[in-house]
């Protein structure tokens, strides 16, 4: 499985209040949430993002609330993968539980710039920056998490058990 797309780039500590502000949380309709994704940090994100695009960020992406609306709205908006130096822990588990691939790789996060075309191979964890011609080895998922991702989320994983 691969993700190929263009990159939206953000800095440190992108929190769940800017990914999807609380004022929209009286709905959990994924499409509606997606239309407000990132609005407080990047008002143009929702209109510009294309199916398959990637988000690359620095430290502690997704810090703050436990709202699963955050990874869900990004996935629904078309984001195929998020690469960051580190992720906040609840965001990390939420993304895995809903089957949104995320990879920790500080080198890639520092090298990749907004607009770069990037390819990620989930099986090998390899990240290839097509625009710059650079390649990075991302942290691969532990086996247990791979099982959840292969089952396309925690719900199926539990139902299959």
């Amino acid at each position: 499985m691969k993700a190929i797309g263009h990159v939206f780039k953000y800095g440190d500590n992108v929190d769940t209040d800017v990914i999807i502000p609380a004022r929209y949380l009286n709905s959990f309709d994924a499409q509606e949430l997606a239309s407000h994704a990132m609005v407080d940090i990047d008002p143009e994100f929702a209109s510009k993002v294309q199916q398959g695009d990637l988000i690359v960020a620095n430290k502690n992406f997704g810090c703050g609330s436990s709202r699963e609306h955050a990874p869900l709205c990004l996935k629904t908006a078309g984001v195929s993968c998020i690469i960051a130096e580190t992720f906040a822990r609840i965001f990390y588990r939420n993304a895995i539980n809903i089957g949104l691939p995320i990879i920790e790789c500080p080198e890639a996060a520092q090298n990749i710039e907004a607009g770069d075309e990037v390819e990620v191979d989930f099986d090998s964890g390899k990240i290839y920056n097509r625009t710059k011609g650079t390649e990075f080895q991302g942290q691969a998922f532990p086996e247990f998490m791979q099982k959840i991702i292969k089952a396309e989320g925690l719900v199926n994983y539990i139902n299959n058990k």
Binding site: S66, R67, E68, P71, I90, R93, N94, N97, I98, G153, L154, V155, I158
Partner: peptide
């Protein structure tokens, strides 16, 4: 704290 899928499970 966990997310919605975790809590449902």
């Amino acid at each position: 704290g966990v997310g919605t899928t975790d809590i449902a499970a």
